[in-house]
Design a protein around this nucleic acid. Structure first.
Length: 500
RNA sequence: CGGGGCGUGGCGCAGCUUGGUAGCGCGUUUGGUUCGGGACCAAAAGGUCGGAGGUUCAAAUCCUCUCGCCCCGACCA
């Protein structure tokens, strides 16, 4: 039905995505620094709301914020073999510590004895400090989070989804036992899922990465995967069991209660500005950005309507009054009182920017003691646009609060319906190839024989990869079957999709 | 690094085949009328046509070289 159908009319999904971001003034390519992006105030305001919500959840689960250096000695990175191998190709490296002017030209000087790597992630340098901070079982668990920028020199980039530099948080924890570490891994994965579903209104599937897709240096990587409107998957958060790999590499040991010495068990988990991209690709449409109320920097825009100076004074006074009332109820309200811009133009502008609710108020409304309220997205009216509602001015804050709550729920339900409509179980290779032919992609539950070479062969043939092996309850009930590619035995279905 | 495309006012483009004083739309500025779904009229500002060299009486246009950007692929928690 219409409400489950979000997919833009645009044939070129990548172009549509860029246009939404540009027209909502969220971000733009940095240009002066290849592969990086500039996050504009409109986009950063969304990220700040995400940050605030996630940060509160991290603290509620006992974590503390800290900050570690941007530059990591090359030798640190080299200490964990898998880790350095995984990030080798995308490291930006600092080799000099000064400049000199020769014949009017600026040249590098002061070549460093040991180059620094601009952090692609901070496991190594944090491992170094953990070894200094941890001595006793009494120091554990150590639960740290860092909000920071990291750099990965990607060959091809897309705004928010994959850029050279990006903002994120990375949690790093150390525990006395593997059991405690595993509990932490799942605890934080649950935080991410709850945030994605309750705040972003974006349904996700929790699962475990295959060995091939695992974080470099981890024993196990868990993730949340969301479906975008073109049927591709976006990994939206990860949580790693690092085992004792980094503990051994950086000699992070503690004395146990019984007097022995053991390596700590570590975890790390992260989510990035990529979430802003996920938000765009989950909810937005051909009219522009769509924001769930819990992340909208502006909840309500009030558009006053007048014909002459007499009406103007009356209407602006009433608009200001209802704005104040809504603000008293904790809402963020913008009154668009610009002159010389017609109401219709204002409507389009705020729709492009994703404001969840618009209130129109003119002389007719004031006389009737009511206002016209319109949601950014809802079941369509006869003109193809969401229906307008008329609400009484008395108790408007409470009523609008209800509208926003409903809207939040509506977006989640719509996104979930979209995912269900684009998820299939596939048992034959012919059918599998058909789903992923050309630009096609869906969420596909299929059997897999567990071999990395099979996984790679499937990727080679279709560009689809295993997004995750679902956790219990996150996919179809476990049932034995035959691998969709090789026909070999399989214990359960795994999630296949093309991905970002 | 392979394949394709593009560089012309702030943005988007036409003009190039067939050389002849640089144009359109949007935006901007000023004034006026408008204002319940992207307003209209009038006036104005703004470009050494990516760069260098060549051919020519004359080059945005033809030739050579060069720089830059975009898309597809390879790469990728």
């Amino acid at each position: 039905m219409a409400e489950a159908r979000i997919t833009p009319r645009s044939q070129d999904y990548a172009q549509w995505y860029q246009d939404v971001i540009r027209e909502a003034q969220l971000a733009e390519p940095a240009e002066v620094v290849k592969g990086c992006m500039v996050i504009r105030p409109n986009g950063y305001a969304i990220w700040e709301k995400m940050q605030a919500d996630l940060d509160r959840r991290f603290k509620e689960t006992g974590h503390q914020n800290a900050y570690f250096p941007l530059l990591i000695p090359l030798s640190f990175l080299a200490k964990e073999a898998q880790h350095v191998q995984g990030f080798a190709m995308e490291c930006a490296v600092v080799t000099h510590a000064g400049l000199k002017t020769v014949d009017g030209k600026v040249e590098l000087k002061g070549e460093l004895e040991e180059p620094y790597v601009i952090r692609p992630t901070s496991e190594t340098i944090i491992g170094h400090f953990f070894s200094k901070w941890i001595d006793s079982w009494r120091d554990l668990p150590l639960l740290i989070n860092q909000w920071a920028n990291v750099m990965r020199w990607e060959l091809r980039t897309r705004l928010f989804l994959r850029t050279g530099e990006f903002l994120w948080q990375e949690g790093h924890t150390a525990h006395a036992t593997h059991e405690d570490a595993l509990l932490e891994v799942q605890r934080m994965l649950d935080v991410y899922r709850d945030f994605a579903e309750q705040v972003m209104a974006m349904p996700v599937i929790q699962g475990i990465k295959t060995a091939n897709e695992r974080f470099a240096g981890a024993v196990e990587t868990r993730c949340i995967e969301a479906i975008m409107q073109d049927g591709k998957a976006l990994q939206s958060g990860t949580s790693h069991d690092l085992g004792q790999n980094f503990g051994k590499a950086f000699n992070v040991m503690f004395q146990t209660q019984s007097g022995g010495r053991e390596y700590v068990w570590q975890t790390s988990w992260g989510a990035s500005t990529r979430l802003v991209g996920a938000l765009v690709m989950t909810h937005s449409d051909d009219d522009g950005l769509v924001l769930p109320p819990k992340l909208a920097p502006i909840h309500v825009v009030v558009v006053p309507i007048w014909k002459n100076d007499g009406e103007r004074g009356r209407v602006l006074e009433a608009a200001g009054r209802i704005a104040e009332e809504l603000r008293d109820d904790g809402l963020s309200v913008k009154v668009d009182d610009r002159e010389g811009v017609k109401p219709g133009a204002k409507y389009y502008e705020w729709e492009r920017k994703g404001v969840p609710v618009r209130i129109e108020i003119g002389p007719r409304d004031i006389d009737a003691g009511s206002v016209v309220v319109k949601r950014r997205v809802a079941a369509a009216g006869p003109d193809g646009r969401p229906k307008k509602e008329t609400l009484r001015m008395d108790g408007l804050g409470v009523q609008v609060g209800q509208v926003l709550d409903e809207f939040q729920g509506f977006l989640f339900a719509r996104a979930k319906a979209f995912r269900e409509a684009n998820t299939v179980s596939v048992d034959t290779w012919a059918e599998f190839e058909k789903v992923f032919a050309d630009q096609g992609s869906k969420f596909v539950w299929a059997h897999w024989d567990g071999a990395t070479e099979t996984e790679l062969a499937i990727k080679d043939a279709t560009k689809a990869t295993i997004r995750c092996i679902p956790l219990v309850g996150q996919g179809p009930a476990p049932e034995k079957g035959q691998c969709v590619k090789t026909g070999k035995p399989s214990a359960q279905r795994v999630l296949f999709s093309k991905n970002y």
